[in-house]
Nucleic acid binder design. Sequence first.
DNA 1: GCGTATTGCTACTATAAATGTAGCAAAGGA
DNA 2: TCCTTTGCTACATTTATAGTAGCAATACGC
Lengths: 108, 108
Amino acid sequence: MAKQAGSTTRSVRGSRTGRPIMALLDLLGRRWSLRILWELREEPLTSRSLRTACDEASPTVLQARLTELREAGFVELGDGGGYGLTPLGRELCETFMPLHRFAERWKR
Amino acid sequence: MAKQAGSTTRSVRGSRTGRPIMALLDLLGRRWSLRILWELREEPLTSRSLRTACDEASPTVLQARLTELREAGFVELGDGGGYGLTPLGRELCETFMPLHRFAERWKR
DNA sequence: GCGTATTGCTACTATAAATGTAGCAAAGGA
DNA sequence: TCCTTTGCTACATTTATAGTAGCAATACGC
């Protein structure tokens, strides 16, 4: 498979400033974005197993997020199928990985 | 003012697992959550100036997010008015602060 | 006192996004 | 061939957000 991610540069919602951090916060602030990156942090997953990992989130949103994350260069669809992080995506993932420890202490 | 944040523990969407990281990713994955924390990173802001900083986002969502973030213990409403980060919130904010540098290199 | 401005916050309708279910075509294995 | 899994889409329903207006409370200057 390994289809190329579309090049439709959809304007990043709520980030009329053009500042990269805003675009990034906006992209990561969409539903399931952070979760997807998190679930892919260790190994590539098929769309189905990713869906399972994400509490059976609806495939509609997952596909939308996956497309956006691919266009952003964080996620790629491997030749043999299955979604994985790009080097850039892995880097991003490690950036907010400390959240894990924070969350554990937080508990709520 | 300094009203107490409501104690209605609204179940954190999509985190039926109970794992703290999921609850955190879910909370931060709602619209404007990350952005609010980001805008409050340096100094407290009034609800109005926060709204201005967030590209005039609708007060409906901002209030909803602020309430959730207060219930989570990340944001507080100061006695003299104005929203600011709690020590915990400041800690969280620093956790994903490296995103800034990442975003600058990312550019898209 | 009075008017005026700002605070945090809410009501309301219109629009956009997510959910939930079903199902497709293509590729692969038995 | 049949069966399974892949990535992905259609559709109607439900939920979330946008956008505008406005409230009560507080704090100013006069």
